[in-house]
Amino acid sequence: MTMELLEIQPLELKFTFELKKQSSCSIQLGNKSDQFIAFKVKTTSPKKYCVRPNTGIIKPKATCDFTVTMQAQRVAPPDLECKDKFLIQSTVVPFGTTEEDITSDMFAKDSGKFIEDMKLRVVLVSPPQSPVLLPINRELKQETCHETSMQKDRELTGVENFCPPHRVAEDLDPINAKELKAASDVERFEAAMDTDELIATKCLEARLAEDVEEIKPAKDTVALKMADDFEKLKLRLNAMDLKMKEADITIMKLREERSTVTIEKDMLKRDVEVLRKKKGTKRVQVGFPFLYVCMVALISLAFGFFIHP
């Protein structure tokens, strides 16, 4: 079964490596199918990286971002080579599946479902160097990685194309020539200073813009995570409210049953007391009276006496 579920941008995790500093990068997952997709992120070095979120559900034709943070390292790898890798597994899930329903069994190869595996490698890059001004031959030169922009700026400001007025100095007297030459050197020095400051400012603005662009995805990811956590908390609170209402209804029913049992118990007590009173007032006589027995005995003796004189 060949099908593509997710589109990953970018295809590698690029971290700016600095000793004893954390570095983060953001990866965007796009659902190319018309079904709900569950994903899970794994890495060969789980103690070195922090992935938030490492699992999730992506709606059809929607996107989802996750952020990978590399912990601060004390030792730099040789030549900034990193062999760490990340694995993104994805599979189709039914409608209504939530992040809490995601388990490791969903991504098992022996489950019979289609599991898409995509590997990402880790790339370490050096931090951009800040501009450094070095005095060379009484002129300030700037060492930057943007040599092309420096040349263009110098052409615009006219520093490189500036022609010192040697002929004018030759026609004037020596004092005026020296003053004019000194003034031209000062102007040239000030123009070079302005050009170097402009280049340094542009480099700083470019670096700040890159930092802002790197921070924006992280902020968006944090905002999405907070929104998801807020929705989950809201659902849990609603569930707790429903359970509390059910408990209140159950308690009311138990109280009603208790009052009914108490009333029935009181009625039984009254019935028992009434029966006891009736039993005390109305005694039932058992056997024959003593006088009746004596009369029967006398009649029997008289009758026997007459029969046997």
Rank of each mutant, 00 (worst) to 15 (best):
M3L: 09
E4Y: 09
E7S: 14
Q9L: 06
E12N: 11
L13N: 03
L13W: 00
K14D: 08
F15P: 01
T16K: 00
E18M: 07
E18C: 03
L19W: 03
N31T: 03
K32E: 15
K32N: 11
S33G: 05
D34Y: 13
A38I: 07
F39H: 02
K40A: 10
K40P: 00
V41G: 01
K42I: 02
T43S: 11
T43Y: 05
T43G: 02
P46N: 04
Y49C: 02
V51M: 04
R52L: 14
P53I: 01
T55P: 03
I57A: 04
I57H: 01
K61G: 01
V75M: 06
P77R: 04
P77S: 01
L80A: 04
C82Q: 04
I88E: 09
S90E: 04
S90K: 02
T91P: 01
V92D: 02
V93F: 05
V93D: 06
T97N: 05
D101V: 00
D110R: 10
G112N: 10
M118I: 15
M118Y: 05
L120V: 08
V123K: 02
L124P: 01
V125E: 09
S126Q: 10
L140Y: 05
Q142W: 06
H146Y: 12
H146R: 12
D153S: 10
R154S: 08
E155H: 13
L156T: 02
N161C: 07
P165I: 02
V168S: 01
A169E: 13
D173M: 05
P174G: 02
E179N: 12
K181Y: 07
A183P: 00
D185S: 06
F189H: 11
E190Y: 06
A192G: 12
D196G: 03
K202F: 03
A206C: 05
D211T: 07
I215K: 14
P217D: 03
D220I: 12
V222A: 15
K225T: 07
M226R: 14
E231M: 13
L233E: 08
R236I: 08
A239M: 15
A239H: 15
L242A: 13
K243Y: 12
E246S: 15
A247W: 12
D248G: 09
K253G: 10
R255H: 10
R255F: 06
E257D: 11
T260G: 06
T262I: 04
I263Y: 06
E264K: 14
K265E: 13
M267G: 03
E273C: 10
V274N: 07
R276A: 12
K277M: 09
G280E: 15
T281A: 09
V284A: 07
V284P: 00
P289A: 08
F290D: 05
F290S: 04
C294E: 10
L298N: 02
S300P: 00
S300F: 07
